[in-house]
Amino acid sequence: MTGQRPAGLPELPKTYRARNLLIWAIGFSLAIIGGSIFGWYSLDAHIRDRFNNFQILTLIVIGLVLIGFMMGLGMSVVVADEKGLKIRNAISIRRLHWDEIGEIQYRHGDPWAYAMLAGTEDDPVRRQMIGIQTTDKDRAHAAVAELRALHAHFRGR
């Protein structure tokens, strides 16, 4: 963007993260790690000796998959720039240009914000933005207001 930025628009690129979701993901990940270590050493030595390497590796892989899934969700992010939005939800990444977005939707009762695709009014297509969570309350409302202002600004060109 050249020249001065209109009042009310954030500096770009702007990143939005779900703070509470990240805190919960880290907490549960630490609980899995701590619980696994505590559980393993709570077993009698003769019971631990009955586990073979494949079984131990399987348990470790299951724990890592659970942690990876939770951290993937916790690291969900929405990045706004002059071109549009980059939305990373867990392991999927989508790039939406401003002209592809019909509106930024965030209704009462929605778990997160949505980018509604333009031209899909008869059969709406919504892209989840897990990086903007209802649990973040005022932060989520402010993020949606900024995204709506950016959308209006860049669609108005």
Results as ranks from 00 to 15, higher is better:
69 F>D: 06
70 M>K: 02
70 M>N: 06
70 M>R: 00
71 M>G: 05
72 G>W: 14
74 G>N: 12
74 G>E: 13
76 S>T: 13
77 V>R: 15
77 V>D: 09
78 V>P: 05
78 V>S: 12
79 V>N: 05
80 A>G: 00
81 D>G: 08
82 E>N: 02
82 E>F: 00
83 K>M: 06
83 K>A: 06
83 K>Y: 02
84 G>K: 00
84 G>L: 03
85 L>K: 00
85 L>T: 01
86 K>Q: 10
86 K>M: 08
87 I>T: 10
87 I>E: 00
87 I>W: 05
87 I>F: 08
87 I>G: 03
88 R>I: 13
89 N>H: 13
89 N>A: 09
90 A>P: 07
91 I>G: 09
91 I>Y: 12
92 S>W: 14
94 R>L: 14
94 R>G: 04
95 R>Y: 11
95 R>H: 14
96 L>Q: 04
98 W>F: 02
99 D>S: 11
99 D>C: 03
99 D>F: 09
101 I>F: 02
102 G>D: 09
102 G>P: 01
104 I>G: 02
104 I>V: 12
104 I>L: 11
105 Q>Y: 07
107 R>H: 05
107 R>I: 01
107 R>A: 07
108 H>V: 10
108 H>G: 08
109 G>A: 03
111 P>A: 02
111 P>T: 01
111 P>D: 04
111 P>Q: 05
112 W>H: 15
113 A>N: 07
113 A>P: 02
114 Y>H: 12
114 Y>C: 01
115 A>Q: 00
115 A>S: 00
115 A>E: 01
115 A>Y: 01
116 M>H: 11
118 A>K: 04
118 A>F: 01
121 E>W: 07
121 E>K: 05
121 E>L: 12
122 D>R: 05
122 D>Q: 06
123 D>P: 00
124 P>I: 11
125 V>T: 11
126 R>K: 14
126 R>G: 02
126 R>T: 04
127 R>Y: 14
127 R>H: 14
128 Q>I: 08
128 Q>D: 06
129 M>I: 04
129 M>G: 07
130 I>H: 14
130 I>F: 15
130 I>K: 14
131 G>C: 06
